[in-house]
Simulated assay, not measured.
Amino acid sequence: MNTAVIFDSLGGNTGRVALAIRETVERHDLPCAVVKVNGETEFNFFDYDLVFIGSPVIDWLPTRRIMDFVKNRMTAYNRGGLIKPASPLIPGKFGVCFGTFAGPHIGEREARPMTMWLDSFLGHLGFSVLDHWHVPGAFSDPAKEAMNRCGRLGDIRNRPNDNDLADIGNRVAGILSHLEAWSPPGREPV
């Protein structure tokens, strides 16, 4: 199963989650490309069977960098005729959307619009989105450090922590196990 993790990270939290995903995929003897987006990122989602896409939450949405990347991919795929009316699912193409959030105000609810935005993109491509993961992550900016202790989540100064990353590893392992048994008609298991 050809797997990739596409992400943006500002303070390093989302990068830590992306690396935890990669480590788990590679422990299952599968290749895993890891790409942190920038202004010149070239990436073909259709080359992969399983794509994890993530970002920190900024004002309920992904970072501007990942939004620009997604919009550029969408434009290119539209021009290439790969975006179909009614977005039919492509057998064997799966995705997971993930994000890190500090949540000093309303907690995880701030992260949900961001992963839904990424979900919509994958859905337009024809990928079956299997899950959305929201991981608390502390602000690394010293000017915002006090907000790490005052939200609905309580003290998140050291998050994502080892337990958060182990949870991500368990979730990845569960998805890989599930997909191992899956195969579209006329094709070997993914």
Rank of each mutant, 00 (worst) to 15 (best):
A111N: 10
A102Y: 04
M67L: 10
V96D: 00
I83F: 02
M67K: 07
T100C: 12
P104M: 07
L82R: 03
N72L: 10
R79V: 08
R79C: 09
A102N: 03
R64P: 08
K84V: 05
S87D: 05
F101N: 05
S87N: 08
K71L: 11
P88M: 06
I83T: 06
I66C: 03
G95R: 08
P104Y: 07
D68A: 13
V70D: 05
G107R: 08
G99T: 14
N78R: 13
M74N: 06
G80A: 12
G80T: 03
G95P: 11
F94T: 03
E110D: 14
A102V: 01
A86C: 04
G99N: 12
D68R: 13
C97P: 04
G95A: 15
G107H: 11
R79G: 10
A76F: 09
E110Y: 11
E108P: 06
L82A: 03
G95Q: 10
R109H: 10
R65M: 12
L89E: 00
G81L: 02
I90P: 00
A102M: 09
K84C: 00
C97W: 06
F94A: 04
P104W: 12
I83R: 02
K93Q: 05
R109N: 15
T75C: 07
A111F: 15
A76C: 09
F69A: 06
G80D: 11
I83D: 04
S87K: 04
I66G: 04
V96R: 04
F94V: 02
D68L: 13
I106L: 15
G95L: 11
L89F: 00
T75H: 11
F69G: 11
A86H: 08
K93F: 10
G103A: 14
R65C: 12
K71P: 01
R64W: 12
A76S: 10
A86Q: 07
T75L: 13
P91K: 05
G95Y: 09
T100H: 02
P104I: 05
R109Y: 15
H105M: 15
G103E: 05
I83M: 07
N72M: 11
K71M: 12
V96A: 07
E110R: 02
M67C: 08
C97I: 08
P88H: 03
I90M: 08
C97G: 11
E110W: 09
I90G: 06
P88F: 00
G107A: 15
L89H: 04
L82H: 01
K93S: 07
G95I: 09
I83S: 04
R109P: 10
E108M: 15
V96Y: 01
M67G: 09
M67D: 10
R64T: 11
G103V: 12
N72K: 14
I83N: 01
F98Y: 05
I66V: 07
I90C: 05
G92W: 01
P104R: 01
P104A: 14
D68I: 12
N72Q: 13
R65S: 11
R65V: 14
P104C: 15
I66M: 12
T100L: 07
G92R: 02
G80I: 03
N78L: 14
P91E: 00
P85Q: 10
G99R: 05
G107V: 15
F69V: 07
P85M: 10
I90L: 11
I90W: 01
